[in-house]
Simulated scan of single mutants.
Amino acid sequence: MPHRYFTRELSNGQAALTGSDAHHLATVMRARLGEEVVLCGPDGLEYTGTVTAITPGRVEFSVNEGAPSKAEPDVAVTLFVGYPKQGKLEEIIRHSVELGVQEIIPFFSRYCVATPKKEEAKNERYNRIAAEAAKQAGRAQIPHVALPLPHFSDVCQALPRYDKTLFFYEGGGAPLRTLLTPGSTGRLALITGSEGGFSAEEAAEAASAGALTVGLGPRILRCETAPLAALTAAMLLTGNLE
């Protein structure tokens, strides 16, 4: 299988890799002129790139016409996840990217155990994890990990830009299968909580903002399990795990 790289230098049938990706392809993989790789551009399409030049710190390609990636879901899912403690967010990012999420937005809420600390530096690492997971999973896009929102009200204020929002509440709600069907497209937001869950006031605020309250069955799921269960179920019900 050809190696996969992401680049923003792609236009008019030409593309280039620089930095660590160029070093990896040229030095580690010992690329040769005429070798083919898969290039993913900022447009979310996949291209076959043929190596045309190798210079220190740069590899150049000619590319064919881009094509949509079969690995990208036809529903754009944003995962709002209550900020967990002890590095659990890295696990959530890695696996949700593999499952097809488009964006991950952590947030702090009333019962969060974790507190904000050096979030800008951590965000750089989180986005590197997302990029690595996207390459491993054969994605054509690198999902974005946003800086955490400081309050749950910020989550609610963001909801109007989504076609549908599902609020996963430990207090129960509508069965997920009644809200998502095969062929569902558009922008979907999923909201799951931290170790402490949500307050009744936060649940009411989410409902007032237009979120549909959903349950995940009678078992209590850990904060790192719930978002992955919710995302997997959403992908399955919309036909994106077939």
Rank of each mutant, 00 (worst) to 15 (best):
P2W: 10
H3S: 12
H3M: 12
Y5I: 01
E9G: 01
E9W: 12
S11N: 11
Q14G: 09
A16H: 01
G19W: 08
S20F: 08
S20V: 14
D21R: 03
A22G: 03
A22P: 03
A26I: 00
G34M: 09
E36I: 02
D43Y: 08
G44P: 11
G49A: 08
P56W: 05
P56N: 02
R58E: 06
N64Q: 09
S69M: 10
A71I: 06
E72W: 02
V77L: 03
L89K: 13
H95N: 09
S96R: 00
L99W: 06
E103P: 12
F108H: 04
C112T: 11
A114C: 02
A114K: 07
K118T: 13
N123R: 10
E124L: 14
E124A: 12
I129F: 02
R139L: 03
R139H: 03
A140S: 06
Q141S: 15
P143F: 06
V145R: 05
V145D: 07
L149W: 12
S153M: 06
C156I: 00
A158P: 05
L159F: 14
L159S: 09
R161Y: 01
T165S: 10
L176G: 03
T178W: 08
L180D: 08
L180R: 13
L190E: 00
S194M: 10
S194T: 15
G196R: 11
G196Q: 07
F198T: 04
E202H: 01
A203I: 01
A209S: 07
G210D: 00
L212R: 15
T213F: 09
L216V: 12
G217H: 01
R219K: 14
I220R: 11
R222D: 06
R222I: 14
E224I: 13
T225C: 07
A226N: 02
A229H: 01
M235Q: 13
L237Q: 02
L237G: 01
N240E: 07
